[in-house]
Design a protein around this nucleic acid. Structure first.
Lengths: 122, 122
DNA sequence: ATACTGATTAGAGTAAACTCTAAGTCAAGA
DNA sequence: TCTTGACTTAGAGTTTACTCTAATCAGTAT
């Protein structure tokens, strides 16, 4: 079990942010008798996943929604499966958009390089 | 030449946002005698590109930087090229991350489906 | 003439996601 | 015993990117 400080160092998130995530119901660590937070290995795993989602700029509300899925009981399995599938759709869509932009950027870059090459000869 | 309202409809950006972008030096349309904004075809092209960059969550400051290089003219070509290349790197990175998440989601989805199949038999 | 539409400005307000502050408790080491 | 450092809370402040308001003006429709 990790303290908030340990998790903070391990994952490079400030303790402020970890408490903020708790307030926002994104993670709910256990507590010691005197009230200190204790994060288990699976809490850390979950946070790593959250960080991945954040890297793609997924809004916190969506991550929240996702998190609430896991806190719900077994009888919501179908609902959870649907939500996962929706998320996957969204992710695949985003990949599509990014690949188009990658292509656009490539074209612009090539145009610039061509322009510079021509300049060299003049 | 387009009025602000026409551009707003054409590109699905509010007139508020268009004026905001002007204040932030992202675009500088011409003006009529009485002071109304007039956007040319190339202004619209530039805005379309800005929208694409936004889709990849490029921060406004970076778009600003790019725009200002454009206004400074020819001797900034190298700088602009570098900026584009950096952004392309960033986009490709995002694609990578998203594909990892897509994979993770697929695994989770398959696990759920397996679980549901087993339930059907019991 | 009057109302409607669409434009102008400066500046205030909002939402998201932190980020920090104040004021404190508690346990361990010099 | 003192100090250091880790932890606690509620709540205030910050940044980004809008988003809206108020007050005004010009041109057109009824």
């Amino acid at each position: 079990m990790y303290t908030i400080g340990e998790v903070s160092k391990l994952l490079n998130i400030s303790t402020h942010t970890l408490r903020f995530y708790e307030k926002e119901k994104i993670i709910t660590p256990e507590r010691t008798v005197r009230g200190d937070r204790r994060y288990s290995e699976s809490h850390v795993q979950w946070l790593r996943f959250v960080i991945k989602l954040k890297e793609t700029k997924m809004p916190l509300v969506q991550i929240q929604e996702y998190a609430s899925l896991f806190l719900q009981g077994d009888e919501t399995t179908h609902k959870r499966l649907n939500l996962l599938k929706n998320h996957q759709d969204h992710v695949q869509n985003q990949i599509q958009v990014l690949m188009e932009i990658d292509d656009l950027l490539l074209k612009k870059i090539l145009a610039y390089e061509e322009y510079l090459r021509k300049q060299d000869f003049s």
